[in-house]
Design a binder for these strands. Sequence first.
DNA 1: TTGGATCTGTTGGATAAGCAACACTGGAGC
DNA 2: GCTCCAGTGTTGCTTATCCAACAGATCCAA
Lengths: 190, 190
Amino acid sequence: MLPKLEEKLDPRVKRTRSLILQSFEGLLAEKGFETISVQDVTDKAEINRATFYAHFQDKYELLDRSISLMFKKEIEKRTLNACHYTPDNLRNLILAVCEFLANMHSECAQPHQQFESLTEGTIKKIIFELLSHWLTQTKSKISTDIPATVATWAIYGLASHYSHMKKRPVLDKFVDEALPLVAVNLEQFA
Amino acid sequence: MLPKLEEKLDPRVKRTRSLILQSFEGLLAEKGFETISVQDVTDKAEINRATFYAHFQDKYELLDRSISLMFKKEIEKRTLNACHYTPDNLRNLILAVCEFLANMHSECAQPHQQFESLTEGTIKKIIFELLSHWLTQTKSKISTDIPATVATWAIYGLASHYSHMKKRPVLDKFVDEALPLVAVNLEQFA
DNA sequence: TTGGATCTGTTGGATAAGCAACACTGGAGC
DNA sequence: GCTCCAGTGTTGCTTATCCAACAGATCCAA
């Protein structure tokens, strides 16, 4: 969650990675993840296939990094990355995760169960790191791992539930109802 | 005016050229041509300056090729590149040139006299080639150089005049009035 | 079962792009 | 006059990307 220090990259590397990521995001909107081949990605990106493997192990790593970047962008847009724990920030975080997952379901073709389980860990990891960062901002010496873990799983669970609902309620109301249940575990850091 | 045969270019070359051209077109909308440096172009394109010189002699060649591409795109959009001489196609061509020059004046910052004289030759060359192509489509053995030259200069002159008018008339009316004067020289090819 | 077709990951050698340095030019200001 | 600054072209060397080719995997149809 630190400000990126890797700005001084070879321009060719930046270009290549960004072309691959763009291409992949475009394809995700068109077809299911399983039916996307590495060739599809490199064709659309107008990048050599061998070059792909110089940057990503395989398409699963591409998925990880892509989802990770998209989610982090969402977090940064809401300036949640440069703050500490407050119930209001927590509320905002829950909103962000809900909207992100809901978006994935509407924008990605075939958001299968399998696809979601591939991205779940990636997203939870970012939530956990963000919460840990928030909680250690406070002076208290209380261990943050347990509360952060509980909150992370709860938040992701809520968002997953929300995104799967057939008739989604207004998001604000949904979060109003859920927020206290998560916040109660973090009271000591407020 | 032939369909481009240079499709099988190294992807890196295509990428680089397109980045440079994009960057340049963007800069043209911001500042006057004279104040644009090669460094400006390469900075915005995120391309090394030395790489620029592997593709263009200097910024004047960049201007030529950029204008040339933009104008040809305009011609292709109107499918004027794959046809022969008719008064109607001629009318369409005049429209294209008028709109192109008028656009340059509104979209480019500082469309100075000097800037226009730099691009005039480039544009006329394309008009001339297109007209020559049209006229040689006909079976007649008449030499096409002279009529094509006359028409080229007349068309460019009309468009330049139109684009400089303080209160531009409706383009259609303007062209209606001008068309017969140009067409009369090409009657034998109709 | 076999064969064709498609995708995967990987390789070696060719080529384009990056980079830092250079000498040179043409102002702007003192 | 002078220096300072910013831009220009050019260079030798490094690094990333390209490309064609390869062997292996998987799937599907004959």
